[in-house]
Simulated scan of single mutants.
Amino acid sequence: MNNYKEVVDLYFELKDSPESTRESYWRRMKLFLDFIEKRGFSIEQITLEHIQQFILYLKKERHLKPGTINNYISAIRFFYTYVLEKEWNSRKVPRMKRINRLPIILSKEEVMTLIHSTTNLKHKAMLVLIYGSGLRVSEVVKLKIGDISSKKMWIRVEGAKHGTDRYTILSDFALQTLREYFKSYFSRKSYSREDWLFPGSNKDCHIHVKTIKNTMIKLRDNLGMDSRISAHTLRHCFSTHSLEDGVELVYIQQMLGHKNLETTSKYLHMTSKGLMGIKSPLDPGDS
């Protein structure tokens, strides 16, 4: 299997894909290859029928959602066509139909209740940055000390999704929280601008995304909140609350790092202000 991983790694290195893309693709491909080998087949023997069985396994035994299964299909298709150099047939391996559900949006008060419910300064600072600046979880864990500008009140996000860099805002509240965190974690250590803002147990590595995801789950459950709430919910709340506060959609797009304005425009459906002032035909009009 290592030989296959080398081929995959070379492709993504030549393409200069983000580390997150490489990791997610290989993780899904490895699960598929383990599935094949446990059933006594060699990787060279893989057929479209094997892939069909794996998809049924993901659906019926792992109970994964259509969107997640489609991500597996993309990874497997890449392995099947690029690594094994076999011909793909989309009619035999169709992508699953996704149901577009609107994400859970918390009120500002609920967001602050979540944030204040943790006593861990590092975790609190990360949650504050996700909500206050619209960062992805994968982006906040990779921040370096030099990415924060207290003078210009912005955050530089490098190597984000789609391989882009961008700037987003830094809130006063987030800056205050960061200063408290920094004083607690860095005051007695030597550091440079290139050091991780949120180092893991090994200071040479940043904190893992699962740490903040699991933290959010614990906080949510402790407060008895909706089980669909995740760390990414805070990014959705940033977008929706910004719209409600009158920030133009194009600026929100830039801060979120969306390639298309259409992606950002979905938040129009989630704002309370989007429905304010509209009178129902059930109610009497002006006489």
Rank of each mutant, 00 (worst) to 15 (best):
T168D: 11
K38N: 15
L64V: 14
S107H: 05
K86C: 10
P94D: 02
Y57A: 12
I104Q: 04
S107F: 01
L48A: 07
K144W: 07
R101S: 05
R136K: 04
S150H: 00
I155A: 00
T68M: 03
K65Y: 02
K122N: 12
L135P: 01
S107G: 08
G67H: 06
T68H: 02
I130H: 02
I104Y: 01
E87M: 12
I99N: 15
I99G: 15
I169F: 07
R91L: 15
I130P: 00
I55E: 11
R91C: 14
V111S: 02
P66S: 03
K38F: 13
G40W: 10
R62G: 05
S74C: 15
G134W: 05
E61T: 13
S138E: 13
T113K: 08
S107Q: 02
P103W: 08
D165Q: 06
L127G: 01
I69N: 00
E109G: 14
N100W: 13
L84N: 07
V140E: 02
I104M: 08
A75L: 07
Y72N: 03
H63A: 12
I145R: 12
L127T: 04
V157G: 01
K60I: 14
R98Q: 08
T168R: 05
M153L: 10
W88I: 09
W154Y: 06
Y131V: 04
T81E: 12
T81H: 09
L170T: 11
N100S: 13
L129M: 15
N89V: 00
F54I: 01
I36A: 14
P103S: 11
T47M: 09
F54M: 05
R101T: 09
L102Y: 13
L48F: 00
T164K: 05
G134S: 06
L135Y: 05
I99R: 10
I105P: 06
K142R: 08
W154F: 09
A75M: 01
T47C: 09
V140C: 07
L64I: 14
S90F: 01
L106K: 01
V157M: 01
K161H: 01
